[in-house]
Amino acid sequence: MQAWFLEHPGQPLALRDVEPPQVRPGAVLVKMEAVPLLSYTRAYLQGKLPYAYPPLPFTPGTNGIGTVVAMGAGVHHFRPGQRVALNPYWVADEAAAEPAQALLGLTGISADSAGMLAAFPHGTLRELSEMPAAVLVPLDGLDHLAAERLAVLSKFAIPFGGLRRGRLAAGETVAVNGAGGNFGAGAVLSALAMGAGKVIAIGRRPAPLQRLVELGQGRVVPVVLGGDVEQDTAAIRSAAIGGVDLAFDMVGQAGDPHSTLAALHALRRGGRLVLMGSMQTELPVPYGQMLLNNWELIGHFMYTRADYLALVSLVRAGLLSLDAVEIHRFAFDALEQAIDDAEKLQGLQSTVVSFAV
C-alpha cells in the first residue's frame, strides 16, 4: 500500500510503498476514502507549531472517512464493510483520575501521552489505517453521502462538543466569537441544528458572516467587531436584545483578548462562556463581575464519544446539513497542492484528500 510520511520536519512529505499493517488487539484496520486537512498543516509539517511529533518517520493526518477491513481481538462493535469516521482524539480507557490523551497523527496532549503515540504513531494519510477502536465512529445510515462530504464532519465535531459542554438548550441565544473561521462557522451551524433561538455571529470580516446569515434564515445576526471592548459588548447585547445565554469562543491566534472579553461581558446574569479557541495571550477575568452576575467560565478541549455520536445522529435526522460546506477535492497523490489550498481556508470551506480512483 501507499502512505505519506513525514521523515524530517521542514522537508516535503514522502510517498512510500509499505507493507499493510497487521491489525492488533483492540484496533481496527480501515480502508481510507477521504481525509480533511487542517488549515495549519503546512506550518505543522515545517515544525513551526509547539506540537510534539509522534516518533519519526510517521504518517500525518488527523481525521478521515473509510470502510472497515478487519478488526483485532477484543473489538466487538464494528464489522467488515462498515463505513466509519476516524477522529484523532484518543483518551486512555482506564480508571485513572486524569487518563492520558493524544491527538493521533498530530501530537501528544498530556505529559504521559508518549506511549500512546509510540503505539499508534500513524495518522490517516495512508491507504490503510490501523487505529484504536475507540477513535472510530460508525456512520450507519449515511451511505447515501459521499466520503468527501462526510469528511467535513470534523469541522463540526469540535464546536459541537463545546456547545454540548456549555449545555446549550433549545431556544437560547448563543454568541459565537470567531464565527468567520473554520471551526467558528461550524459552531454557528451546529448551534442552529441544536435548536438555538438566535445565534450572534461575531467576527472581524463581514463577508463570511453574511453567508452564515443567509443559512440561518432569520436566526443568525452578525456583529462585526471594531476592537473596543465596551462598544463591541454593546453591539452584541443589542443584537441579542438583552444578554446572551451562552457565549462560545472559537477565536484563533488572537493578539489581544478584546473580542473574548466582549463576549463575556455580553452574557446575561447566569450566562456561560465556553473557551475553545487558540488565543495565547492572557485573559483578564473581572472577578467582581463574575461573582455578581453568576457567570460561568468553561474551558473545554475537543469532544466526547457521545458528542460525536450525537453529531452523526443530527446529520442522519436531517437536522444538520453538511452541504453548506464548500469542498476543495484533491487526489491522494496531489497532497502538496492540497496542503497549499488548506492554508487559504475560510469559514465554510474544507480541503479534502480523496482516495477514489
Rank of each mutant, 00 (worst) to 15 (best):
G186W: 10
R205C: 00
E214Q: 15
L275Q: 08
D245H: 15
M250L: 15
R42G: 14
A179C: 04
L49K: 15
V285P: 09
N182M: 01
G226V: 06
Q101S: 13
Y44M: 15
A92M: 04
A324W: 04
T59K: 07
G184Q: 05
V23W: 01
L297P: 05
P222Q: 14
M194N: 06
G72N: 02
G74M: 10
D140F: 04
D232N: 12
F120W: 15
I202C: 15
A52D: 14
H144K: 12
L106P: 00
Y53S: 12
V23F: 00
A342G: 08
V352P: 11
R79Y: 06
L335C: 00
L45Y: 04
Y287W: 12
G270Q: 02
E19T: 13
R167C: 01
H76C: 07
A240W: 08
A118K: 00
P54Y: 05
R167I: 00
I298M: 03
L163E: 13
L136K: 03
R205D: 09
I339N: 10
A146S: 15
A73H: 14
V91L: 05
G203V: 04
M1H: 13
A263E: 02
M194W: 08
V75E: 10
A234T: 08
I236W: 09
Q82N: 11
H77C: 08
P9T: 03
A338T: 12
L168A: 03
L86K: 06
H300V: 05
Q217W: 01
R272W: 07
Y89Q: 02
E7V: 01
P55S: 04
A187M: 03
L297G: 09
I109N: 07
A119Y: 06
T41W: 02
P284D: 01
A338E: 09
D307Y: 02
P57A: 08
A263F: 01
P12N: 04
L209C: 10
M250P: 01
A73V: 12
F355N: 00
G255K: 14
R305M: 02
D340T: 08
G216L: 05
A240H: 09
A179R: 13
Q231R: 15
R219D: 04
R42H: 14
R316P: 13
G299P: 01
A73K: 15
P284V: 00
I327D: 06
A147P: 12
